[in-house]
């Protein structure tokens, strides 16, 4: 692995309390990786704290949502010539100790995308709210059927991908509001190999940026999005 060929994208919205610790955690685990904090128009000191902790900072001038922030991170990674892109949430629920393992799988070419699953180990460490649990279960099942491989945690924000996948995500195919099982199905249909690895999560303190979206809209959006993904012609992954 050449120096600084890997970048860890951390989308953050008003996470001044956690972002420094997350950046330091990543730097400790991966001293040769760059960290990019995408500040999604925070009103607090997220940007300043992230920069002080040693991260590159990409600040979006207006709050644009989780998917838009992530996509900005992918664009940064592509423009700056990184080879592998990892992503973690800024609320401190992900521990960077799993990053080397996830990275190794992508760098060895065993998969194009590796997802850190909260449920694979089945230790009940992470307990989502009832509505989210039902939605995750349902769309995980749909993804499992369509992709013919078990998908236990399609909403996980803990992922590592090759730069080809990140480049694919910088196009209009990426759902800007909230990436979920639909993007996994899209990846599968585009010929990318997706793999899940079990990770343990800490429960986030306070509300995470995920809790904002309402469950009824979430279920509606996912049904529509997965249906439309299946109806569209297969996009070419190499573009």
């Amino acid at each position: 692995m050449t120096h600084f060929s890997c970048i860890v994208v951390v989308p953050a919205f008003n996470e001044a309390a956690n972002v420094s610790a997350v950046v330091r955690d990543i730097n400790a685990q991966l001293p040769h990786a760059d960290v990019l904090v995408v500040d999604d128009g925070s009103s607090d000191e997220t940007s300043a704290f992230a920069a002080r902790a040693g991260a590159a900072v990409l600040r979006l001038p207006v709050n644009s949502g989780y998917g838009v922030a992530l996509q900005a991170g992918y664009k940064y990674a592509v423009a700056h010539g990184y080879r592998v892109v990892a992503q973690m949430d800024a609320d401190g629920q992900h521990s960077a100790e799993y990053l080397p393992r996830l990275l190794a799988i992508v760098e060895d070419g065993d998969a194009d995308v590796v997802i850190g699953s909260r449920f694979l180990d089945g230790d009940g460490h992470y307990t989502p709210s009832m509505a989210r649990k039902v939605g995750m279960e349902l769309f995980g099942r749909v993804a499992t059927i369509v992709m013919r491989q078990p998908i236990s945690d399609p909403t996980s924000g803990y992922q590592v991908m090759s730069i080809d996948v990140a480049r694919f995500f910088t196009t209009d195919v990426y759902p800007a509001d909230y990436p979920d099982a639909d993007i996994l199905i899209l990846l599968h249909r585009s010929g990318y190999r997706v793999r899940e690895v079990g990770v343990q999560m800490r429960m986030p303190e306070g509300a995470s940026m995920h809790s904002g979206h309402r469950s009824v809209y979430y279920v509606y959006k996912m049904i529509l999005s997965i249906g439309l993904t299946l109806l569209r012609p297969r996009p070419t992954g190499s573009s």
Binding site: V57, L58, L60, S64, K75, A176
Partner: peptide
């Protein structure tokens, strides 16, 4: 909205700061 998203990302990319390397 799609255009705005692209512009917001572009502005963010243009003013992004580099990481502090060890």
């Amino acid at each position: 909205e799609r255009r705005l998203t692209k512009l917001v990302q572009e502005i963010g990319l243009m003013s992004a700061t580099a990481p502090a390397r060890p």
